[in-house]
Every structure is written in structure tokens, then in C-alpha cells.
Design a binder for these strands. Sequence first.
DNA 1: TTGCGATGAGAACGATCGTTCTCTAGAGTA
DNA 2: TACTCTAGAGAACGATCGTTCTCATCGCAA
Lengths: 186, 186
Amino acid sequence: MIDDTAARAQVVDAADRLFYARGVQAVGMDAVRTEAGVSLKRIYKLFPSKDDLVVAVLECRREVWNAGIAATAERAGTARGKLLAVFDFLDAWFREPDFRGCAFINVYGELSGGSEQVQRTVREQKEAFGAYVAQLVREAGAPASLAPQLAILAEGAQTTAAISGTPDAAAQARTAAEVLLAAALD
Amino acid sequence: MIDDTAARAQVVDAADRLFYARGVQAVGMDAVRTEAGVSLKRIYKLFPSKDDLVVAVLECRREVWNAGIAATAERAGTARGKLLAVFDFLDAWFREPDFRGCAFINVYGELSGGSEQVQRTVREQKEAFGAYVAQLVREAGAPASLAPQLAILAEGAQTTAAISGTPDAAAQARTAAEVLLAAALD
DNA sequence: TTGCGATGAGAACGATCGTTCTCTAGAGTA
DNA sequence: TACTCTAGAGAACGATCGTTCTCATCGCAA
């Protein structure tokens, strides 16, 4: 038998795949159990309710997102380069064949009237990203008002790419970000 | 008894309120029937399935959106002014107490794995908005590449405002749009 | 070997969903 | 008046949901 840590990872992984592809409400716990290969009893011991599982999935997504952003930023030397690297990261993400938009936005739209804990997790993720951008804007020596503008561009690129089905929005948002950066740094 | 046109309007109106506030999947047809005051039999005569009702609700939202955008644009003289007016429209919308984000984005996130007709309706709305912005950009004498950038700003403002729970994103996006417009019109 | 606690597989439960059906009442027509 | 058609109210249906329960099985201490 596998230990709790491994079982937990398998369940979160399977749930993430299913929830992201089909939506949370369209996926039953039975499907999660089949995909994960972990019994329902064990799943409910690890996650007392489906909401807890959704939160765990989002927290896992946050780790992946942060790691991806950090890896792309590392290849850039300046703070300005790190800010633009966000859009390169988005570009690569949008080109993945199973891209279906930002999981946080999707879940928020689906469960906005429901679990309050899920809403909080989504909000925290967006706030953390905003804080990351704000830190880089400070380092770049640009006025603080630039940060939310760049964050809005990244947000808009994600929903536009999801709905249009093309990755074009990443490059378009990057170009806009360059203009805003140039104007702010004059 | 009311005629079909009035019954249809009542059902769409009630469904819109419920779907927007709680999500499509969280609202049963029984709740729509109670809110609309129209019998289930009649609802299913007007809309053969729940998906058809969702599409009708989205089409109604599109009319309201287009009318609101047009009304705000009318108060601006120039094409540049009409482009910025989009963000004034968003600002007023975000301040409404029951604002919960863009209904099209919410529905897309919720049913992305489901009805293909719903997906098409969402995509058409976003394409139509993009075409509207592109037309104004042309009239303003700016390069065509500006249009998707402004559309992405509007899109990002909507999701940011929904998740953050504040209307700030409208003004931030408007400021960014002014910078992009100034740079494009040099 | 015996007894015990935990596990996996999946049946079972109560609720709710989208959709259809039944039954009754009333309007219009000859 | 008698007949027909439609609509409303809501029960009914089969499916599916999240969650819990049953039961056979296994590892392991004494």
C-alpha cells in the first residue's frame, strides 16, 4: 500500500486533470477515484469534502504557477525583463494542447455562489501574483501604478486565449506591456 | 394568460438573475420556474433544453451589453473618446452591488467541457466586442495592433474586478488604455 | 493460531438534477 | 350543452451527485 503523501498526490493530480478539463461540478468523486486509483474511503479521509479537494487542487496549481513564473524569470537579468518574461510564460502555456484558461478563473466562475473557502483561495492567488508584479515594478524603478496595469494585461490575456482558442493574446499583451513599461520608465 | 413573447422574456429574465448569481449548474429548472412564474411545461415548449435557455440568456446579456456600450460611447465625440468610454462603462458596471464578473466568462469556465453551442455563443460575443474596438481604432487612425491590446485590458479588468471584489481595475485599465492610445497616436 | 484494527471495493443512501407525464380546469366552437 | 384543445400545477422518472456504510480481506501483535 502507498503512504498518505503519495496517495494525496495521486488524488490531487487526478482531480486536477479532471476538474480542469471538464469543470468541477461535471466530475463526480467516483471519477476521481477511478482516475486516481485510490478508494473513496481513503479520499474522504485525506479530504473531508469535495470542497477541500478543490482547494487542494488550487493550491497545487499555485505551486506549479509560481515555479513556472520563477523559472522563466530566472532567464531574464533585469526587473523589466522579468516582468516581460511573465508574458513569455503565458505564451508557452497557451500553446499547450490541453490549455483551457486559468483554472482559478474557471473555478471562480463556476463556484462563485458556493464555497467561501474556494473563493478565498482564488483571491489569494491573484493577490499573490499582484504582489509579485508590484515587487518587480518597484525594482524596475517604475511608479507603483504600473503594477495593476500589467496584472490586468496578464489576466485579460488568459481569458482571451481561453475563449478565442489561440495563443495570440500573450504576444499582444506583451507588446502592450512593453509600451507601458517604456512610458513609465521614460 | 400571457403570450409567448412575454413568457419568454420572463423566463429569460429570471434565469439570467439566477444563473448569474449562483451559476448555471447550481440552479435547477424548478427554481427558474418559481422565479419566472411560468410552468415547466411552457418553459420546455419555449426552450427545448436547459442549454437552449442558457444560450437565450447569453444572447439577452449581449443585447444589454451592446446597448450599454453604445449609450456610453454616444457621450464621447471622438473615436478615442469612445474607446476610453468602454472603461467608464466597466467602472459603472463594477460598482453595481450584484456584479459578479462577466457572465460570458463565468459560463465559459463552468461549461467549457459541455455544450458546444454555449461555447460558440461566448466566442461570438468576444469576437463582436473585438470587432467593435477594432472599428474605433481604425477611426482613431491608430495601427490595428492596438485593438486587441485594448480588448485584453477590458477583459482583464472584468475578471480582476470580479475576483478582487473592488471596481479599481476599471480606472487602472483606463489609465493603461490612455498610455497605449497616446503611444499609438504619437 | 487467534484476535484486532485498518483497508479496498463498491453497494447503498438521500438529495437533487433535467425532463416527461398525469390530471384537472377552463376557453373557444358548433 | 357537448367536444376539443391547451395550459397550469406538480408528481413522477431515471440518472447522477456527494457522502457513508457494509463486508470481506489483510498485516501484525501476542
